[in-house]
Amino acid sequence: MSDLLYTEEEEAVRSAVRSLLADHCDPAAVLARTESEQPHDRELWKALADGMGLAGLLVPEDRGGQGASHREAAVVLEELGRAVAPVPYLTSAVIATETLLACAGDAAAELLAALASGRTVGALAVPFATAPEAAPEAAHLRVRFDRGALHGEVRGVADAAAADVLLVPADGGLFAVDTGRDGVTVTPQTSLDRTRPLAVVTLDAAPARLLAEGAEADAAIRLGLRSGAGLLASEQLGLAEWCLTETVRYTKERHQFNRPVGSFQALKHRLARLWLDVVNTRAVARHAADALATGSDEPNLATALAQAHAAPVAVRAAEEAVQLHGGIGMTWEHPVHLYLKRAKADSIALGTAGRHRENLADLIDLPAPATP
């Protein structure tokens, strides 16, 4: 069994990322950006991806990356979750990158190196709610390939507005489409979580290049979404930890009846239950990251378990943070609503907790209760 404790290298990555985010991603700046026309923080992405080389963590060194593993990427996502950072790390450095890693050929290798450098941002053009086991069958139905070009529309694509290239499933193949080319339109959608905005991708005779086809394309899409779902649990862990830490701090400082509100027994019990939930979330998130990195356990099983547990915990942590912050927690100026929106959006991203529980039951051959 693998050691799930953080290594010295992982803690060093955490320290570096947290320091950068403290300087460039404070809550006031994130809130202001969500109210602007440019929700993505391109300067922060450049610092993370180009300056620190984090975009290529999952890419082997001989293919232009850092040669690290999912465990290090999970630590990065924990810190990004703590800051609700508006950068396309999960969608580009994890999902799109893992998809390309499973594709053979020069076109995929060239694009993978570009994503690893951080100077190119990629996104898998499937609805962000798509569960790994539901793809790619449903994804192929949205776009068709005809005479060297793609035609169709995909809704709910996360971070498409920030992407330079889209990986588009169509007619049993996987194609790369540059967003700056004629025939490609990316239209922002009204999104609950403005720190990870969604968009409609419309393809009207968009020029495309083939990356993979048949079983290879299907496996690549599944792998990308599975890695995304598994590491999303680490982002949800970071989010829940921030909510718990800030709520405990606030309840110690806020006084009522000449006592800190955190000294009241009812609130102590609520925070203690939340602490236990967060500790358990850390365990399943680390297990998923380790299974993806080493294959020491069934990755599909670990991913389903992590998402079945982490998604509802992140939502509950954010809801408790809003409630226990009292009146100030209901204001737009306080950042806690950003965490609630991210938690709610993440709870349906890459499959709901209910969908993952169903998948988990199938994986361990646990039949549903018989209906009378």
Rank of each mutant, 00 (worst) to 15 (best):
A205M: 11
A205Y: 11
A206T: 06
A208H: 04
A208M: 06
A208I: 08
L210R: 15
L210T: 14
E213R: 00
A215M: 07
A215W: 06
E216A: 09
E216W: 02
D218I: 00
I221Q: 06
L223P: 02
L223A: 15
L223D: 10
L225T: 04
L225K: 07
L225I: 07
R226H: 11
R226Q: 13
R226K: 12
R226D: 07
R226W: 07
G228R: 05
L231T: 09
L231E: 13
L232P: 08
L232C: 10
A233P: 10
A233L: 13
A233W: 11
A233T: 11
L237A: 12
L237R: 11
L237N: 06
G238P: 02
L239Y: 13
L239H: 14
A240T: 01
W242T: 09
W242R: 14
W242C: 04
C243V: 00
C243M: 00
L244G: 05
L244C: 04
L244R: 10
T245I: 02
T245L: 04
T247W: 03
T247R: 03
V248P: 04
V248I: 12
T251F: 02
T251S: 09
K252R: 11
E253S: 13
E253D: 13
E253T: 10
E253M: 13
H255C: 09
H255V: 11
Q256H: 02
Q256Y: 02
F257W: 12
F257L: 13
N258S: 11
R259G: 03
P260L: 07
V261I: 15
V261H: 09
V261W: 08
G262D: 12
G262L: 09
S263N: 00
F264V: 14
F264T: 12
Q265H: 12
Q265V: 12
A266V: 14
A266K: 12
A266D: 14
L267F: 04
R270W: 00
R270V: 03
R270I: 02
R273P: 00
R273T: 01
R273K: 03
L274M: 09
L274H: 03
W275E: 14
W275R: 15
L276M: 01
D277Y: 00
V279Y: 07
N280V: 03
T281P: 01
T281A: 08
T281C: 10
R282L: 04
R282G: 02
R282F: 02
A283G: 05
A283V: 13
A285Q: 08
A285I: 07
A288V: 06
A289F: 15
A289M: 15
A291S: 15
A291L: 14
L292A: 14
L292D: 13
G295W: 14
G295S: 14
G295L: 14
G295H: 15
S296Q: 09
D297H: 09
P299F: 04
N300R: 07
N300S: 03
A302H: 03
A302D: 05
A302W: 06
T303H: 01
T303P: 01
A304G: 05
A304Y: 03
A304P: 02
A304C: 11
L305S: 08
Q307N: 12
Q307F: 05
A308R: 14
A310K: 01
A311L: 11
A311G: 05
P312H: 04
V313L: 12
